[in-house]
Design a protein around this nucleic acid. Structure first.
Lengths: 253, 253
DNA sequence: ACGTATTTGTTCGTATGTATT
DNA sequence: CAATACATACGAACAAATACG
């Protein structure tokens, strides 16, 4: 089912028709290789302006179906997990919505043993785990340190990935590994360890958030993750004017 | 604070600068009559294209701060108190749901001057305020220190209330005083001051949550509140299995 | 390793449709 | 009905990041 032609007369806006048709094609598996058409291809095949294309694609992106970034072609999110908006972890996205771009820098990538992670993953202490530790940057400044432990059986293919602009779950799905679809998380205020504090560029007397997160897929734990978030520069802010939505925001004031 | 001029060079996209400035003006109460500038007025006053204006306003709209529809002018969302159950502050109730009983102990009740509270309440620094400081106990153990500042004009009748088993908002309503129906709150990790730390029975190296909260009624601030929550014994926990509910829970495990 | 082509992001301009006042 | 205001839609150009030869 390649592409439906759009009705120019009246029923729905063009962007809505385009969005609907793209949703249909996603469901039909038209892009199951993960390759989504480029903006230009869409303008050609549907005979609409790029503006209209972007309007439709933006909505698909916002719904968590796509991954878009400059230069890189648009990718399908083969898994539909990122939109668990309830989760505190997803609040990182709200930083990006302020126009600040996030990147990461790999601190550590290798095979380790970790008692705490093993406990949460439900394996013995001496089980080999993949550790991916990243420094998350927002607008070039340190925002958080993110450490993810995964069972090696699942995660071996991840050892050779460039993580600076790659999302963990997208890559997991890409390798055919199980992606978390349930779990829990908890938030604690802490004094960061000296090494972490230095890496985040924090002063000694400042506290931080510790966000711990267990991800399970169909009941079996697949990921234990801890995130140390700068508390001197970022806060969880919640407006209860309208939506009551929470955001992670830089402390401008 | 009319309108900041935007920096055309490079730090952030124009739409992000515009969004940030509009958020600031909303917070400052520039549009508290509910009247938001039209797209055209914004293009003029900020000297950007309508496309850029729409990009910024769309995000504010999506965040639930605005109400937009064709022909009708853009309105500020001044209501929406119903969903305030999302608020972090209300998570205190979840402690009680574990069977632990909450009480409070009045630490201070009187008339004070406070620069920070005055700032948030929008009055001059030397304005007399009512301060109600309470130690919140859960099952007989310290959980948090709660300080609420209210304009004396509103709060005078509260001076003679027994607070150990009384909720603040219920008593406000009882006296015919305005009860907050809008506002915002933010969560920061901190190192508690020594006095607070001792009162909460915390060790020196432990961090705490600082929950700050501004309550307004019909646009005018009526309450500034800070709550210091023990971080060594209580955490925000969120299950993203089914309910996605967040709770404040003792760190039993 | 470097330069070029590609792709998405940002920003401008303009015009028309449609609902509200 | 007329004016206003937001929604939709076209076109064009440059910037920034990436991918590829």
């Amino acid at each position: 089912m390649p592409a439906k032609s759009l009705d120019r007369s009246h029923p729905l806006p063009l962007w809505a028709q385009l969005e609907a048709d793209l949703r249909r094609r996603i469901d039909d598996g038209d892009f199951d290789d993960g390759l989504f058409p480029t903006d230009l291809e869409l303008t050609d095949s549907y005979s609409v302006s790029r503006h209209t294309v972007r309007d439709a694609v933006r909505r698909l992106n916002q719904a968590g179906l796509l991954t878009r970034s400059r230069g890189r072609m648009t990718q399908l999110n083969l898994q539909g997990f990122e939109q668990s908006l309830e989760s505190l972890y997803s609040l990182f996205q709200s930083v990006e919505s302020t126009g600040i771009e996030q990147t990461s820098e790999v601190l550590e990538l290798g095979v380790v043993n970790d008692a705490t992670a093993s406990m949460h993953l439900g394996v013995s202490e001496d089980t080999d785990l993949l550790l991916l530790a990243r420094l998350r940057l927002a607008g070039g400044e340190a925002l958080a340190i993110d450490r993810a432990w995964l069972p090696l059986a699942i995660a071996t293919p991840l050892l050779s990935v460039d993580w600076s602009h790659t999302a963990l779950y997208a890559e997991l799905a890409n390798c055919g590994s199980p992606v978390p679809n349930q779990g829990w998380e908890r938030l604690t205020p802490i004094l960061p360890k000296q090494a972490d504090r230095v890496m985040l560029g924090m002063k000694k007397s400042e506290a931080a958030f510790s966000l711990e997160r267990l991800g399970t897929c169909d009941g079996t734990p697949v990921e234990w993750r801890t995130t140390i978030i700068r508390g001197d520069r970022y806060r969880f802010v919640s407006d209860w004017t309208a939506t009551g939505r929470s955001e992670l925001r830089p402390t401008t004031t």
